[in-house]
């Protein structure tokens, strides 16, 4: 198997020293914070009534990107194709969901 271990240009740049957990812990803290804010916005009615839904949706979207780019190790530089397809999935998904909601 090792004979097959090929490294392409992208991987050669990666740092051989293992990444630290600090980034992930920070990201996790942020997620918990965003979740708390979302729950608070709904339960405590601190946000103006009409703005609650867009507000919590934005928070959810931020969380998705946190997951994608920290936990799931997606990064734009090395995985351009992956990022393109994931974004396409999100866009088409959003269109489907909104269309079904509005037109269905």
């Amino acid at each position: 198997m090792e004979t097959e271990v090929q490294q392409n240009q992208a991987q050669q740049e990666t740092d051989p020293t293992p990444e630290s957990a600090v980034k992930h812990l920070l990201s996790f803290a942020l997620m918990i914070g965003l979740t708390l804010v979302a729950f608070a916005a709904v339960m405590l009615e601190v946000v103006p009534a009409g703005m609650v839904i867009p507000f919590i949706l934005v928070l959810a979207v931020i969380q998705v990107f946190l997951q994608l780019f920290t936990f799931m190790h997606l990064d734009l530089k090395n995985n351009r194709m992956t990022v393109t397809f994931v974004m396409m999935g999100l866009i088409i998904g959003a269109i489907c969901a909104v269309a079904l909601f509005v037109l269905g």
């Binding site: 994931v86 998904g93 489907c96 909104v98 909601f101």
Partner: peptide, 25 residues
């Protein structure tokens, strides 16, 4: 890994459709 990312992309659309259905109903 790449194939799995594609599967995730497909699943995103699948769930989006179920979300849309839920919102409509």
């Amino acid at each position: 890994v790449l194939g799995f990312w594609f599967l995730i992309g497909a699943e995103t659309v699948l769930f989006a459709c179920l979300f849309g259905t839920y919102l409509a109903l």
